[in-house]
């Protein structure tokens, strides 16, 4: 049985490493709540590299404009066709911002149009149940970025399975802390990451 390895996408155009503690936090959550075999550290995988296909779930974030090279675009197309899931989160939390605009433009070129996911999407019940859809982040509540609480995530599905999950809710900030600090929280705010991983592994 192959263990799950959390992969962060490295792309050429922006600050892909803006949330370096997020992988450890997500790995910690997977280990805390599930029996999934998980590697203790994450990996960084360039989008243009064939290595991308070793990690069928890849996380991508940043603040700066996203412009994929032709190689990255071609890789992502194949990645989606073969069943990989790309999770993109806007670290600016700003739908008027350059990351959001450029990322949606580039992702639309690769995947086609993004569609909002309804509250009843299987992602929100894959492990923990989130009846109201994606959980709100503290940054949203604090008026960070565009000062909006985004009610939905967006995505692209192929044959009933998500291949792209796009978030404006700034989970990158929400989850970018050392997992040791989880004990300070009354409610673990990383539980939704477990849903994403369990969904990717079981659908």
């Amino acid at each position: 049985m192959s263990e799950f390895v959390f992969a962060t996408a490295q792309y050429e155009s922006g600050d892909w490493d803006s949330a370096p503690l997020l992988p450890a936090n997500v790995i910690d959550s997977i280990a805390r709540y599930t029996s999934i075999e998980v590697a203790p550290t994450g990996v960084i995988v360039p989008l243009s590299s064939p290595s991308l296909f070793r990690y069928p779930l890849v996380y991508l974030t940043g603040h700066l404009p996203v412009r994929f090279s032709d190689a990255e675009r071609a890789n992502l197309r194949q990645f989606a066709a073969r069943g990989g899931l790309l999770f993109v989160d806007d670290h600016n939390h700003d739908i008027d911002g350059t990351f959001h605009k450029t990322a949606t433009e580039e992702l639309t070129r690769v995947y086609g149009g993004l569609k909002p996911l309804p509250k009843t999407h299987p992602l929100y019940q894959a492990f923990f149940v989130f009846e109201d859809g994606p959980p709100t982040t503290s940054h949203e509540l604090n008026g960070w970025g565009d000062n909006l609480v985004h009610k939905t995530l967006s995505g692209v599905e192929r044959e009933g399975r998500l291949v792209l999950l796009f978030s404006n809710k700034d989970y990158s900030s929400e989850w970018n802390y050392h997992p040791e600090n989880k004990r300070f929280l009354s409610v673990d705010n990383t539980r939704f990451s477990v849903n994403i991983v369990v969904y990717a592994l079981t659908r």
Partner: peptide, 19 residues
């Protein structure tokens, strides 16, 4: 990054999933 001690934290979460 940080290295998680998977064995130490395994199944120590308070919440249980109910898919």
């Amino acid at each position: 990054g940080a290295i998680v001690d998977v064995a130490r934290v395994r199944l120590s979460g308070k919440d249980k999933g109910t898919p």
